[in-house]
């Protein structure tokens, strides 16, 4: 019998946080959301906007999808039928409609923010990092609290890698290192940043 995980976190939150931010970083270790990473890190302003938008959408979709999965789709839910095969389709619909809603709200209440985030918001609906976060939450069987923390930390992990790479690439492009303006440069920069994480956390055991 499958039991629904509780609402309040019973897990140790520190390892979850560090995992999502560093050791299982979404961009560099799990390879999720690379399209935006390669495309947007040539400029630190756009990557800042994208990071903020992704972190927000990730946290909000974790808040929305956890109850839907555990109270409607899972066999332990109030319906009592195994509807877990519908999870992918449900999550993608929830994320897409939520992104649409966020777009309307931001456009209505904060035009300057909309202007800076505007073009990235629709992109987030098909960003695999967001779908990845909600699927990981289900797969790991986190409680509600832990899943929100995990999603927020994953967003922070996404952000710092975006900003670090953008800083690296922007500087190199400014120095006319031509290689770093294209896709190839993005991957070389990613290699450097990923090596830092992997080698640091292979020495430092938490």
């Amino acid at each position: 019998m499958i039991e629904t995980p509780g609402l309040l976190p019973t897990e140790n939150l520190f390892p979850i946080f560090v995992d999502a931010m560093f050791t299982k970083n979404f961009l560099l270790i799990m390879f999720l959301g690379l399209c935006s990473y390669v495309g947007l890190t040539t400029n630190s302003d756009t990557s800042k906007g994208m990071s903020m938008a992704v972190t927000f959408v990730m946290t909000m979709s974790a808040i929305l999808t956890w109850p839907i999965y555990h109270y409607l789709l899972s066999p332990a839910s109030i319906i009592g039928k195994d509807l877990t095969f519908l999870r992918t389709i449900c999550f993608i619909l929830i994320i897409a409609s939520f992104v649409q809603l966020v777009e309307f709200i931001i456009r209505r209440f904060s035009p300057p923010l909309y202007k800076s985030l505007g073009i990235y918001l629709p992109l987030i609906a098909t960003n695999c990092a967001v779908l990845g976060v909600v699927l990981m939450n289900i797969q790991e069987g986190y409680t509600y609290g832990a899943s929100i923390i995990y999603a927020f930390a994953a967003g922070l992990g996404y952000s710092w890698v975006m900003l670090a790479t953008a800083a690296l690439r922007e500087k190199l492009i400014m120095r006319n290192v031509d290689l770093f303006s294209g896709f190839i440069g993005a991957f070389f920069a990613a290699t450097m940043v990923a090596l830092i994480i992997v080698s640091y956390f292979s020495m430092v055991k938490l």
Binding site: L28, F31, F183, I184, F187, F188, A190, T191, L195, V198
Partner: peptide, 21 residues
Amino acid sequence: TVMVTPPGAFLTIAALMLLFK
């Protein structure tokens, strides 16, 4: 061993793309 870890993936694809370019 670095080649089977994540940085290895980035390095391999960067090298392959450079080769094709």
